[in-house]
Design a protein around this nucleic acid. Structure first.
Lengths: 218, 218
DNA sequence: CCATAATGTGGGCGTTGTCAACATAGGAGT
DNA sequence: ACTCCTATGTTGACAACGCCCACATTATGG
């Protein structure tokens, strides 16, 4: 697919839009950033993209599916940011802390976006979870898991004993910590921490967990 | 002439309801449990309580306020469960682990309820957060904080040095861990852990953090 | 005993999500 | 080139929603 399509100079003023699917996702992202929630209507998204209120249904089965696509894109950019953040870092313990800080910052800087990623579809009680979304979420998690695996195999985290089961649990704990921290910070439940103290607090929290991983097994 | 009053009859179901406010909250809880989300309409809640679609507005400014009341009640029962769980436990480290497990279990057993507590109002981008709700959330958190304070003053968590600032951060980290773990578990992102493994996993995660707290300061 | 607040009812407005029917454009096969 | 198919867009409609209004009914206290 994506063979070389004829690049018509004709701008998308025609009846057909060109790449409406992407436009809709971008419009949704705009609204999300402006209103800091996803209560905007599908019709409003369509208006932004200058199409009729029913055009979106050619690309998304319903509003949920559009939100799911937005959420998936969020997980992917989050993954990329974490990857970039640890490009030069060798020590797994340092990398883990760094990743946590970047993760939390992403959430705090895009609160509504971050909440949407987890809140709009994943936990909405729908048994039907779009494949793309779950994949994207796993891709983000795999950054954490990868670091912990390296730490386990290089004996930086001796408590894990290089045991896949323990590694899995530790990764889950790490994700839990950063995810929970981010959520609480966004929700304004992180005590009276001033805005710029979040980074330090996140770093401290991550270090506490890493200290636990460095220790011997219980 | 038309306004003839027949007030000799007095069934318990009079024009006024009695305690509609509570009934509405209970109806909302029912719907929440049944549908596992809070997309139900305010009118549906009113129907459950057998009142007109406008009666709720005498007790709640809007739908959000009703959900906020439901959320607040959730935080209070969560607090109670945690308190009860550690009634006989003396050692702060054991109490902390126990509390975490109970916390996670509450969330997993009432997934939609738990998500509502954090998702419907707190993080909805509204600057206006009902006082009751924030208070109730703090009350739940205070159980964790209380344990960590005891651990700090009794030198079970020497890393904290009995320093209020460090205690605050550690409490936040603890809450982050259990909150994040619960959310991920609810969202089905906790790997392929079988349902009954959650307890063990939660316990392990909590222990890892506690191990970090027990260690010396960095 | 009645004025007034508290509480519940019915009607209505503008908007929403989604369905159905129809219109248009671009390609594939002949 | 012509036709037909399919992807994609449009308009129209409907029931349901949140919330506002005016009004009805009860409770209360001066």
């Amino acid at each position: 697919m994506t063979a070389t399509k004829k690049r018509r100079r004709e701008p998308p003023r025609s009846y057909h839009h060109g790449d409406l699917r992407r436009s809709l996702i971008e419009a949704a992202l705009e609204l999300l950033a402006e209103e800091q929630n996803w209560t905007f209507s599908l019709r409003e998204v369509a208006r932004r993209a200058r199409v009729s209120h029913n055009a979106p249904y050619n690309h998304f089965a319903d509003k949920q599916q559009l939100l799911a696509a937005v959420a998936a894109s969020g997980f992917l950019t989050l993954r990329d940011r974490m990857r970039k953040a640890i490009e030069g870092v060798d020590r797994p313990d340092a990398a883990l802390v760094k990743t946590g800080v970047v993760y939390v910052r992403f959430g705090i800087e895009n609160p509504a976006f971050y909440k949407l990623m987890f809140g709009s579809v994943l936990g909405s009680g729908e048994a039907e979870r779009p494949e793309d979304l779950v994949e994207a979420a796993d891709a983000a998690k795999s950054v954490l898991t990868g670091i912990i695996e390296r730490g386990a195999s290089s004996a930086v985290f001796p408590g894990l004993r290089n045991d896949p089961k323990r590694i899995q649990l530790a990764s889950l704990a790490a994700w839990s910590l950063v995810h929970g921290f981010t959520m609480l910070a966004i929700d304004g439940l992180a005590d009276g921490l001033p805005r710029r103290a979040f980074n330090a607090a996140a770093e401290q929290a991550a270090k506490t967990l890493v200290a636990g991983l460095k220790g011997s097994p219980e």
